[in-house]
Structure formats: C-alpha cells, structure tokens
Simulated scan of single mutants.
Amino acid sequence: MKTLVRPVRARRGPGLSLWSLRITVTVYLVMVLAQPVLAGLFLTGNVDAIAVHGVVGSTLSALGLVLVAATAVYLVRRGRLWVLPAVVLLFLAAGLQTGLGYSRVLQVHIPLGVAVTTATVVLAVWVWSPSAARPRGGAR
C-alpha cells in the first residue's frame, strides 16, 4: 500500500500580513506627504486648504491605529521586533502633531511634522524592501 506524501511547498514572496502593512503604510505616506503641500497652499493664499489640512491630519490619527494593528499582525506572523515600537511612536507623534496644529503651536508643529514625514518615508522604503519580506531571524 502506497502512502501519499505531499511535498511541502515553500511559501514564496510576501504574505498577507506584509501586504496589509505595505498598503496601509503607502496610504499613510501619501496622506503625510499631502500635508506640507496643503500647508503651502494655505500660505500662498488658498484659505480653504487649511481646513483640508486639518481633516487629513485628523484622519492620519485614525489611520495610525490601523497602521499599529497591521504592524502587530505583521510582527506576529514574521516581522521584526523594532517595527511595532517605531510605528507606535509614529502614531503618538502624529497625534501630538494634530493637537499642536489645532492649538496653533507652530514652533513645535512644523519641526515635528518634518520628523513625522521623514519617519514615514523611511518606514515606507523599508516596508517595500526585500528585508521586510524575509522571515524573522533572516532565514530564507
């Protein structure tokens, strides 16, 4: 009597948890990059742009929670340990950024905005890199 043994197929490419993280980070990045453009439009005389800037900022705070959740799932499935604390810090910074913006504390709002934008760009570059797709421990 023959026994059927199915070969174990190695999974190739990123899994669902990484794709969820990639999509969320990309949407977050597009919204973060829109913020300085909207602020610049306001400074050049388009007074309606500041209202959109505020709405996008508030939406970023909500999307930050989705980003934290997607990162937690990624961490459980295959992720690097540093990613979750980094994303939580980004979420907290974006929330602080929103509060400072509505309070008009621009001497902190503007440099913090630069930091949030830079951190988001770095995160987006990493999440689309091959390093993000490798399982924890670097095994291939």
Score class of each variant (00 low, 15 high):
59 T>F: 03
86 A>I: 05
79 G>P: 05
83 V>C: 04
83 V>A: 06
139 A>Y: 01
103 S>R: 11
67 L>D: 00
43 L>G: 07
71 T>G: 06
95 G>A: 07
50 I>E: 04
78 R>N: 07
10 A>S: 10
4 L>H: 14
102 Y>L: 14
138 G>C: 10
113 G>C: 02
52 V>M: 06
26 T>H: 09
94 A>I: 03
41 L>D: 12
127 V>K: 05
122 V>Q: 08
63 L>M: 08
81 L>R: 14
53 H>L: 01
38 L>H: 03
47 V>M: 13
137 G>H: 13
83 V>D: 04
123 L>I: 09
3 T>E: 15
134 R>L: 12
122 V>Y: 08
107 Q>M: 13
18 L>M: 08
117 T>N: 07
64 G>V: 03
70 A>G: 09
95 G>S: 05
98 T>S: 11
40 G>A: 11
7 P>E: 15
115 A>D: 11
68 V>F: 07
124 A>T: 01
93 A>Y: 05
4 L>W: 12
18 L>F: 09
69 A>Y: 01
115 A>E: 12
30 V>H: 05
107 Q>P: 00
70 A>T: 15
104 R>M: 12
37 V>N: 00
51 A>S: 14
50 I>D: 03
87 V>R: 12
11 R>I: 13
131 S>T: 11
83 V>H: 07
27 V>A: 09
32 V>F: 00
65 L>W: 15
93 A>C: 05
79 G>Y: 14
58 S>C: 12
41 L>W: 09
132 A>P: 00
52 V>S: 07
115 A>R: 12
118 T>D: 03
16 L>F: 09
27 V>W: 02
26 T>A: 15
75 L>Q: 14
102 Y>M: 13
100 L>W: 03
95 G>T: 12
